[in-house]
């Protein structure tokens, strides 16, 4: 799993999330858009939906179950889930562990 592939998976999940949002409230698909944490565009349900969709897709592609969202370290996780770039880095790290 490399960063561009991980970003593709994240952008697919963002496409699904955009179906839940008004036309004038679409999430931009760029590596630096703030998703979670302060100034993030996702609420908790949006963030859960995104991370679980990504986890499922990664499992389909690699056969490996990775966990991006740990309830136990939710706050600490926020920095890893802040943008598509940081999520992609987290995916690569966990997929190679």
């Amino acid at each position: 799993m490399d960063i561009p592939t991980a970003l593709d998976v994240i952008y697919q999940a963002i496409d699904s999330l955009n179906e839940l949002r008004a036309a004038d409230d679409q999430i931009e698909k760029s590596i630096s858009v703030m998703l979670a944490g302060e100034g993030g565009v996702l609420d908790s349900l949006g963030l859960i939906t995104l991370t679980l969709a990504v986890e499922r897709r990664i499992a389909q592609m690699t056969g490996k179950q990775i966990i991006l969202l740990h309830e136990s370290d939710y706050d600490a996780n926020m920095s890893h889930l802040a943008t598509p770039q940081t999520i992609a880095e987290l995916i690569v790290e966990r997929a190679s562990a």
Binding site: S16, E19, I48, T49, L52, R56
Partner: peptide
């Protein structure tokens, strides 16, 4: 596919994945 994700239930109290809701 998949229609259910038990993590969705335990994290968000939603028994079905987003495709089912759609």
């Amino acid at each position: 596919q998949p229609a259910r994700d038990s993590k969705f239930w335990y994290l968000a109290k939603t028994p079905f994945t987003e495709g089912v809701h759609k």
